[in-house]
Amino acid sequence: MTDAPTGETGFARVERPAPPSAAANALTFGWRAVLKFKHVPEQLFDLVMTPIMFTLLFTFVFGGAIAGSTGDYLQFLLPGILVQTVMFNSVYSGMGLSTDFQKGLFDRFRSLPIWPLAPFAGLMAGDVLRHLIAGGIILGIGLALGFRPEAGVAGTLAAVALLVAIGFGVGWVFIVIGLLVRTPTTVMTLGFTVLFPLVFASNVMVDPATMPPWLESVVALNPVTHMTTAMRGLFAGNAGVGAVALALALPVMATLVLAPLVLALYRRR
């Protein structure tokens, strides 16, 4: 048996090239996310199955009862389902992070002389890609079922931009959870335990005016409500600046507070 003693190239001394920029590091991690898509296309299935089921079930089973017609209900439901999609997506990214830690991959990354936040920036880049793909699929299905954005292409693009911003902000929450929790399945359980009540106790599925007053005031405080309102407004072309600002409040705050926390946790872990 030989260790391939031909060319000594691998064992020859190789000096370190000029250090790459932080952005180049982050892009490399983004490339990794793209490769993951190539090798594990099944993940797309995980990402879009739940929202597709929600869309179909709610539209066709409850739609008529809730909004009078399935068409009207789809018009009401779809913007909120998109918000739900990116939020659930973020759970998967937290799980991915937890898996990477468990596998020791981050030990390797951390012992490299790179920008410490680069792996997370790459993770975020991958997330944005996933949000766009999953959001695109859900929107496509919605359009096929009869969803009609009154604000046209411009409104749709604005809504998608807001969606990505929401996903980006919420993503930090699950990165923090991914850093704190030991196993990927715990991240998932924890994530869905938090997200299900958030999504249901909101205006995503039904008009809160039909709820008991105490619940209505809870719903009014739920950030998912504000995100959904702004999304509907952008699709319909009647969104106020205030509504969009409210929708962005949580993502912006999450980024400002959690990004430094991520760095601190990462250094400590």
Binding site: R32, V40, K103, L105, D107, S111
Partner: peptide, 13 residues
């Protein structure tokens, strides 16, 4: 450079 006790590779790649 460090090679940890458990392989630190990306299994999907």
């Amino acid at each position: 450079a460090m090679t940890g006790q458990f392989a630190s590779l990306d299994e999907d790649l």
